[in-house]
Amino acid sequence: MLSSYLTLAAILFCIGLYGALVKRNAVVVLLSIELMLNAVNLNLVAFSKYGAVPSLTGQMFTLFTIAVAAAEAAVGIAVLIALFRARGTVNVDEFDEMRR
């Protein structure tokens, strides 16, 4: 059963990676990153039940990951709103000052 959970998490992670690389709207990129974080959480909880030493440690790790992810989403949206005020767009292709 463990390998089924791990495969599902791998699929979820790869879809999130594809979305984060391809999408242009910065909000959607943030959404894809949340998807990847969810895949990681699924792995942690699966190992906390089916791992070599089953314990609650994986669930504690997931709790802290969820807290950090919530903080990341809040700060990310705030940065996007500030960028939108300054530049009038959230298209990631147009934030390319550092390239020139």
């Binding site: 949340e34 809040a74 949206i77 996007l80 959230v90």
Partner: peptide, 23 residues
């Protein structure tokens, strides 16, 4: 947190940034 707060936060982010929300 995820299905409630983060989804709503993202919807607010979309509303406060751009309204021509088609890629």
């Amino acid at each position: 947190i995820y299905a409630g707060a983060v989804s709503i936060l993202m919807i607010f982010g979309i509303m406060m940034t751009k309204h021509q929300d088609v890629e």
